[in-house]
């Protein structure tokens, strides 16, 4: 035993250290993924017996308008959420100055990320609320008729995304601020001697050095957009008439909400959402892998 251990110690030690994490990951992430996939072939109300349906849930999904609404909204979320990356960069650069009291301003800008998404959602739903909401009254004052953003199927998703962007921009900003700390001053100086200023400086000198920060910012933004659940749930509950649903919310609604308990169908939606996430996740992993092997 001890001879064996000595011989293989270097190979075994990392696995031993990884074991607690791996076991947790296996129990709470990997196994449930396969369980969900398995469940998506059944009809189950969470109480009675399961009935095997085969691909019936997926067939229904293809023919389900609500599913397409959710999918479309997810795409809108993904695209518009990306605004937080340049916006966060802009604010980070703006805040990356040495002026008295800058720490205070930085913390104020970071503040929305610290408060809970639920609180953000509540604040924005009051902001948009008909009759007393600030935004509603502003629109009413400017155009004569107020618009209740959260009651209009055309605007509701954008209204929620705007609420989501507020903390997300702050998050991206903090990522860039730390990135900016690591920008090499000598390179900036050299670029300045060579006459680089303004946009050119930003594009050719600063941004390339911020690439790790940009990568993380994009990753967290994509993930944030795909798992946008809390804001939808708090602000509209998927309404009006389901027009602000996203896949994660629709999954919850079908599987776990008051009128749902179609576990199989919810699981099928989860599998689709997982497939979409997988596209991004494998992209990210592939990039990280490439970066590490290049080094």
């Amino acid at each position: 035993m001890s001879a064996n251990w000595k011989a293989n110690q270097r190979r075994l030690a990392p696995w031993l250290f990884l074991a607690p994490g791996l076991i947790m990951f296996l129990i709470y992430v990997i196994i449930p993924i396969f369980q969900s996939m398995w469940l998506s072939f059944y009809d189950w109300d969470g109480l009675g017996a399961k009935t095997w349906l085969g691909l019936e849930n997926y067939r229904e999904l293809v023919d389900d308008d609500a599913f397409y609404t959710s999918l479309k909204n997810n795409v809108i979320w993904l695209l518009l959420y990306m605004i937080s990356v340049p916006a966060g960069l802009l604010i980070a650069i703006f805040l990356n100055q040495t002026i008295g009291g800058m720490r205070l301003y930085k913390s104020l800008f970071f503040f929305p990320f610290v408060i809970s998404q639920v609180v953000v959602g509540l604040m924005f739903s009051w902001f948009y609320a008909p009759n007393f909401g600030l935004f509603y009254n502003l629109i009413e004052w400017a155009t004569g008729t107020g618009i209740a953003i959260l009651a209009e199927d055309k605007y509701v998703t954008y209204g929620i995304i705007a609420a989501g962007l507020w903390p997300q921009i702050a998050y991206v900003m903090i990522l860039y601020l730390t990135g900016l700390n690591n920008v090499a001053p000598d390179q900036v100086e050299a670029a300045r001697l060579d006459g680089a200023r303004g946009w050119k400086m930003l594009w050719y000198v600063i941004l390339p050095q911020l690439r790790p920060a940009t990568f993380i910012a994009v990753v967290v933004t994509v993930i944030g957009a795909l798992r946008s659940f809390d804001l939808v749930s708090i602000m509209t509950d998927g309404g009006p008439y389901g027009s602000s649903r996203v896949l994660s919310f629709y999954m919850y609604e079908q599987a776990l909400s008051e009128y749902g308990y179609r576990m199989g169908y919810g699981a099928a939606i989860a599998v689709v959402l997982f497939a979409i996430m997988m596209v991004f996740i494998s992209g990210f992993i592939w990039k990280m892998w490439r970066d590490e092997t290049e080094r």
Partner: peptide, 22 residues
């Protein structure tokens, strides 16, 4: 409505009523 009709139908119906009123 949500006690007379089964849960799923109630949900779909109530969304329809809301949409109709808008």
């Amino acid at each position: 409505f949500d006690r007379d009709a089964p849960a799923e139908m109630a949900k779909a119906g109530m969304e329809g009523f809301q949409e109709f009123m808008v």
